[in-house]
Design a protein around this nucleic acid. Sequence first.
DNA 1: GAGTGGTCTAGACCACATT
DNA 2: ATGTGGTCTAGACCACTCT
Lengths: 241, 241
Amino acid sequence: MVKSKTDIIAQDIAAKIRHGQFKAGTFIPSENQLTTLYGTSRETVRKALERLNSLGLIQKIRGKGSIVLNLERYSFPISGITSFAELNRSLGMNAKTKVLELKKMESLPKFFKEKFPKQSKQEGIYVERLRLIENEPEVLDCDFLFTPPIKELPLKVAQNSIYNYIENDLGLEISYATKEVTVERINTDLQKKLAVGDNLAVLVASHSFLSDTTPFQLTLSFHDPSKFKFVDFARRQKIKP
Amino acid sequence: MVKSKTDIIAQDIAAKIRHGQFKAGTFIPSENQLTTLYGTSRETVRKALERLNSLGLIQKIRGKGSIVLNLERYSFPISGITSFAELNRSLGMNAKTKVLELKKMESLPKFFKEKFPKQSKQEGIYVERLRLIENEPEVLDCDFLFTPPIKELPLKVAQNSIYNYIENDLGLEISYATKEVTVERINTDLQKKLAVGDNLAVLVASHSFLSDTTPFQLTLSFHDPSKFKFVDFARRQKIKP
DNA sequence: GAGTGGTCTAGACCACATT
DNA sequence: ATGTGGTCTAGACCACTCT
């Protein structure tokens, strides 16, 4: 996995924003200055800035420059595709994962079919994991990993990062996901696992794909509604839904 | 507002996907073909395709082509910045808006300050609107529009589209927003307005900005949890949070 | 007028798929 | 060998902001 110049520039500027070297409300160097700084063409610099712009790290203003936006990302985001392990690392949460179940299955679990009715019979691996933050249950993640492309799943991987395993050990390229967030009534078994009083939970259902459009994962995440918080950044689109 | 070639190409291909001219699971013409089709350079075509790619309309696969993804966007998205009026039009919902309140205020309403504690005293216009779909209450939108940049808000605008008014009548450029989704307990007054049994609602709090980073709007949207559904498309980022 | 970002071009070389 | 998308370049012209 070689990084392109665009990757390097975007990540470098993002790091400088995170570390406060470029402060919120101030302008970063102009495109021409960045061009000489990184020794590339202006279009390459512009591609890197466009990435930061769409993520909400900067705002480009014609005739003036690119200003660093005031971002406060201390919460639990479900936008983007980021694994729990990655979030834990980058946000410095005191988080733990408890694997409740891990088994191969001949077909999709029943309660998955309600949310993913179009899925046909398919072999795979079922994993159920409770996520705790500061020793309090926060999320119950139920994953179904398709076989193929995922043949095996060591317990140690489930305890740590499945995404790291898929990308680095299996060499697959995780690309995109569709997500659906709803509020659902849950049974007493789930109430007990999450240790919540209400019989309601926030359900995030995800369908994830590799870069060749192969589906590899279905996830049902049940969140304690009193702890659920989802932060998003959105830009006004020129292409309407 | 002149459209760039990139805009035209992106919107044209998006329309062809929506109308089924380019079908899900099939490849759209190659970049070289599109280059001759639209009479532009390849980089321009690529910028248009990149936009469709990030929106989840297509998936680019190296060595093969760009495949149309299977999108089903029949639900109520809060991702992106799209006004209720725009959604109603493009999704063909039978939706109505009932303006419950519209008044100028010297400062931010009290219940806004809990969600936006950093806002200082500021003059503005408060609007409260109930959104009905198929004659059933779905969302209560509470908006606070800053003065400046928004001096006046005719009742007729509140009944139709505030965004259309801001962009087309005032000539301002709506650019981006931060959003936060939580589940909150609501009082009986709100329960009555939304006609829900539970004392819980999904709250979407938004902070919206113009392209010069001027804030112009705060919104608190209370959703009936049993009807709330939020669909998102996400790509794996090279820049980690 | 000088500096900024916005758009577009024509061409180059590369990595990957397919035949 | 051919066709596909991925990356990068050097340069051009434009629209806007500020002094």
